[in-house]
Amino acid sequence: MKLDNIYQEEKKSNFAKVSEIIITMASRPSGFIGLSILIFHVILAFISPYIAPYDFKAINPTLMLQAPSAEYWFGTDDLGRDVFTRTILGGRTALTITFFGSLIALLWGGLLGIFCGLVGGKTDDIVMRIVDAFLSIPWILAMLLIVSLLGTSTEVLIPALGFFYGKGIVRVARAATHDVIAKDFIVSARARGHSNFSIIWFEIIPNVRDAILVEGAMRWSWMLLGFSSLSFLGFGVSPPTPDWGLMISNARGLMSFAYWSVIAPIVGLSSLIIGINLTADAFAKALGIDRSTKAPV
């Protein structure tokens, strides 16, 4: 039973809908924290090139491993580069690559999932099996293979990450579509003779969009972790590009005497992951989607 009196509600503009969702998200403490962290990181990513105090690649052997000071807020690393500069720029790399990666994951995962859910039967079986087979290869090995063949440029990393993280989205989109196409409004549209395209666009997508977006948001934080692990292993972006994974990997041996060079990127990475996670969760709640049953794996 819908308990709230919904009779006054009228059709809203898209802008009004989006702002209502954001307000609902922010009205929960966890959503508020998540959104704040995420917005902080996004703003930082935009302005970091302009506020970075030093050149991120300027090596200065005389300044090796300086402790944090008024001049070098987060200290310097083993090559004498400013850790603060590299940390704020590192977030920019991570956010950009994983954001576009997630978009690609959403696009192919969502469309393929909807397609499979719609056609069903043999085609669905075959496609899903291929997707499963492809993705049963441990993703990190596959990524290593791709990266070693094609290099570590952004043009390779974004689609590759997008491809590997789309699998979960295919499943969610397919399941959501399955639920929807059994409904009589789809039968009704088919009986009227609407084209498949129009059925997908007008009937299915509005009903599965929320589930797919939530899944995408969730995948984003996982992709961030994956991407940073790649860099950590030396297969992500290549030096001297500032990147959290790389920074952690470089500095981990110095942990015992130069903790600052590793703390900053760790805090950056974990706070961003937590921020995205909390935001995605609040987003799901605001849309009324119950994610508790399908934890991302």
Binding site: D184, V187, S188, A191, P206, N207
Partner: peptide, 27 residues
């Protein structure tokens, strides 16, 4: 369906049992 032309489809329309299912909730 695929063998019917648009006019064949137009002349026969359906009304279902449960309008909650037959009307797209997002429209």
């Amino acid at each position: 369906l695929k063998e019917r032309d648009p006019n064949d489809l137009r002349i026969i329309q359906l009304i279902f049992q449960n309008p909650d299912e037959s009307l797209n909730p997002n429209h």
